[in-house]
Amino acid sequence: NRLGIIYEIQGMKAVVLTSEGEFLIIRRRKDMKVGQQVSFENEDIYNV
């Protein structure tokens, strides 16, 4: 599992900021809110 803070939500995608200072786009889940810490898997990351 990886951890990140939700920075922005766009439709079915969420932008998270990881503890390494990396911004990633992941698959959104219904319970996500901006500012929330979430765990996610590598499979949830969109390749940009």
Rank of each mutant, 00 (worst) to 15 (best):
I25C: 15
R2K: 10
N42K: 06
K13P: 00
I5L: 07
L24D: 01
S19M: 14
N47D: 11
G21A: 02
R2D: 03
I5H: 06
M12R: 14
G35W: 04
R27V: 08
E8C: 03
I45V: 08
I6V: 15
V48H: 13
N42P: 06
A14Q: 01
T18G: 04
D44T: 02
D31N: 07
I6Y: 00
I9D: 00
I25M: 08
A14V: 10
Y46R: 07
R2V: 05
E22D: 07
I25E: 06
V34E: 07
V16L: 05
Y46C: 12
I25Y: 06
G21R: 02
G11Q: 07
V34W: 05
S39M: 08
S39I: 05
E8L: 10
E20C: 13
V16T: 01
G11T: 05
R27P: 10
V34A: 05
G11V: 05
Y46E: 07
M12Q: 14
M12H: 13
K33P: 01
E8D: 09
E22L: 12
Q10V: 13
M32R: 01
G11D: 11
E22W: 10
V16M: 03
V15M: 14
L17W: 14
E43T: 04
Q10Y: 09
T18N: 02
V48Y: 02
N1K: 10
F40N: 01
V15D: 01
I5A: 05
Y46I: 13
G21E: 03
Y7C: 14
S39T: 14
E8R: 13
N1Q: 10
K30F: 14
S39A: 10
N47A: 05
N47R: 03
N1S: 08
V15N: 04
S19E: 10
R2W: 12
M32F: 07
V34D: 02
E41V: 06
V38E: 01
S19Y: 09
N47Y: 08
Q10K: 14
I5P: 00
I45H: 04
F23I: 11
G21W: 03
V16P: 00
S19D: 14
E22T: 11
L3Y: 15
M12T: 11
I26Q: 00
Q37F: 09
N47E: 15
F23R: 05
V16F: 01
Q10G: 08
Y46N: 05
G11C: 08
D44F: 05
I9C: 08
K30Q: 15
V15Y: 15
A14T: 06
V34P: 04
I6N: 00
G21L: 05
V48G: 09
K30P: 09
N1Y: 13
V34T: 05
Y7R: 12
L17H: 09
N47P: 11
N1T: 11
I9W: 03
R29W: 09
I25V: 11
Y7A: 13
L24E: 03
E41R: 14
G21F: 06
V38F: 03
G21C: 12
N42C: 12
N42M: 13
S19C: 13
R29K: 14
D31M: 08
L17S: 03
L24Y: 06
G4F: 03
N42W: 15
Q10P: 01
R28L: 14
E8I: 05
L17A: 05
N47K: 03
D31L: 03
I26N: 00
V38W: 11
S39C: 15
F40W: 09
D44W: 06
I26A: 01
I5Q: 04
I45E: 05
V16W: 00
E41S: 14
R29S: 09
G4C: 04
K13C: 14
L24W: 09
F40V: 09
G4W: 02
V48Q: 15
I6S: 00
F40H: 01
M32K: 02
V34I: 12
K13T: 11
Y46V: 09
E43P: 04
L17Y: 07
Y46H: 09
M32C: 03
V48L: 09
Q36N: 11
E41Q: 13
F23M: 14
L3P: 03
L3F: 13
Q10N: 13
E22K: 08
Y7I: 15
R29N: 12
L24S: 04
M32G: 03
I26H: 00
G4N: 02
S39L: 06
K13I: 07
S39G: 03
I25S: 08
L3A: 10
D44A: 03
F23E: 07
Q10D: 14
K13F: 11
S39V: 14
V38T: 07
F40R: 02
V38Y: 09
K33L: 13
N1M: 13
I45C: 10
L3M: 09
Q10T: 05
Q36M: 14
T18W: 03
E8Y: 07
T18Y: 02
V34S: 02
S39P: 08
R29M: 06
R2N: 06
R29I: 06
V15T: 13
K30M: 14
Q36E: 10
V48P: 14
N1A: 12
N42H: 10
M12I: 09
Q36A: 07
Y7H: 06
F23N: 02
R28H: 15
S39K: 11
N42T: 12
E22G: 08
